[in-house]
Amino acid sequence: MNFKNHLMFILPLMAILLGIEFFFVFDRVTKSYEESLTKSYTMFVSTKKPMKFSDFKALDSKIATVELVKRDYIENKMKEMINRSNMKKSLKLLPYFYNLGLESYLKIEIIEEIKKELEKNKNIITIETFSNSYTTSYKLFSFIKLIFNIFIIFMIVVSLLLILKQMEIWKFKHKERMKIMEIFGASVFMRSRVLFIMALIDALLSTLFVSAIFILIKIKWAMNSGIEMISKHQEFLFTSNDVIILFSSAILIVLITVYIVVFSSKGTIE
């Protein structure tokens, strides 16, 4: 099998592996972004009487943290405005304020559901979800991710079609040889050994090339990218586990391809 034939198989295989790796990179970045959003996000709740964490948790299990907002600042402000006797009365009327943290990044619809659950409690006076600031940047990010995923799927489909086309060439090229070997009693493995070896070499080369591209991006580009999340977490771009996943995917694709060639080459000899 000549170099051109190898390349015609390696390139689409590389495109698929690039797609898979891009998906992983985006997935890791998204998860990290969601985590940072979750960490910085709180719902603001005011209540008539003090409430404990367990009280909030009982209202909705997705609430992960409860922080009482200190009343000192409010009290100091009030002191400036009203006299001592009225102060005591006013303080009794002043609600308790809480910042509620969530266990993970949740969609705005779910946050609204939590809000509804909290509103059922008569002790709770007001709830502010700050949903606009919470979702605006994330929506943009999700949109980019969606577009990118569509592109990846498209790239994988086109690449698979190219591999199928290449497979037709393989089939044409090897059908006669495999048929002759079959007639003389060669096992499936023996008559397809050449194809398996070639395909495994192509799978290995594709994995190495794709890994090299991402390792290069990680080493050369990540630090100076100017993207905080990437420069802080360079492992988002490539991990050692990715090599295993990429190689396994490549092996799976080539095995399926070779088996299709082998079994479609069976049949009556003309």
């Binding site: 006669e176 002759i180 079959e182 007639i183 003389f184 009693g185 060669a186 096992s187 000899i269």
Partner: peptide, 15 residues
Amino acid sequence: EKFRRKLGIVFQDYK
């Protein structure tokens, strides 16, 4: 497969 190993086949177009 084992059976065919006991045969020798000659084709018109040599194969």
